[in-house]
Design a protein around this nucleic acid. Structure first.
Lengths: 140, 140
DNA sequence: ATGGCACACGTTATAGCATAACGCAATTGA
DNA sequence: TCAATTGCGTTATGCTATAACGTGTGCCAT
């Protein structure tokens, strides 16, 4: 459980959604978040999706495409490679047994993919890397 | 348009779905496929999803997670790195302007990700790599 | 040949994920 | 002050995917 380093610029809904993700020990779907926040006045999916859009834009939340779910960014403290809070491309290892998610960043992979892109004249806007599998703990 | 190298072991439904994807010049959603095949007797999503599951298992079709859509595999002829028809991990560059998809394979990226996985004791089952962006043609 | 099994298929219903379109309120800055 | 922007709440709708049921067919071990 991490200390709640909450960006003060967040609106109430955004904070609630972020905190729900931060408290969770795994990815949450938008509808699961909605259920967790009904006691705080949330009534409709759009309230969640709008907050998620902003949090994703801020880099505080990542969407897992292969799961249709969301996680709080694991890289709380600053950046390793410029870009403010952010990082280049982030990759995820998702355990299909315990559904825990490892977030990591691999420069080499990043560079190879950018190199491929430039060689093809392709201008990347967002890159998704997700490894589904079994984590060490579950494999034991 | 490629020659129709259709695996004869495919069932009727599987062939129809594969041919629909093969004819298309971009990714198709399951429901789009359903609409294209109504004239051939398709009536329900499950008919499409069941065929897609098998085709994916055979390696003839890929699912694009960030699009919830499917494409025919672009690597018709054999493999570059063992595994029968297949290849290690395939990556995609998806143009957000014209929605064309480039399928490619990058050994280096593959190896870096496997290395990361072994270093963490993570056993990968499926890896997704998708680059969203603008293709050369659309950027011009 | 016959009973059991595996597999593809068809259908209905339902679950899960996401956005459109409307109107209102608060904030900001020209 | 007025217009633009942003967030918010609500209703309705659309898109994506699977559950659960039953049918038919081919295979092959007994």
């Amino acid at each position: 459980m991490n200390a709640p380093i909450v960006n003060p610029a967040l609106t109430k809904n955004q904070s609630l959604v972020f905190e729900a993700l931060d408290r969770a020990d795994g990815p949450l779907s938008a509808y699961t978040i909605l259920d967790k926040l009904r006691d705080h006045g949330f009534r409709a999916p759009l309230q969640v999706y709008r907050a998620l859009d902003k949090l994703t834009e801020f880099g505080m939340v990542h969407r897992l495409e292969s799961l249709n779910a969301f996680v709080a960014c694991a890289h709380r403290e600053s950046a390793c490679c410029g870009k403010g809070h952010g990082h280049g491309t982030v990759a995820f290892a998702i355990c299909e047994s315990c559904s825990q998610v490892l977030e990591f960043h691999d420069h080499e992979v990043d560079h190879h993919l950018s190199d491929w892109a430039s060689s093809k004249g392709f201008k990347p806007s967002k890159t998704t890397i997700e490894i589904r599998g079994i984590c060490q703990k579950c494999a034991a």
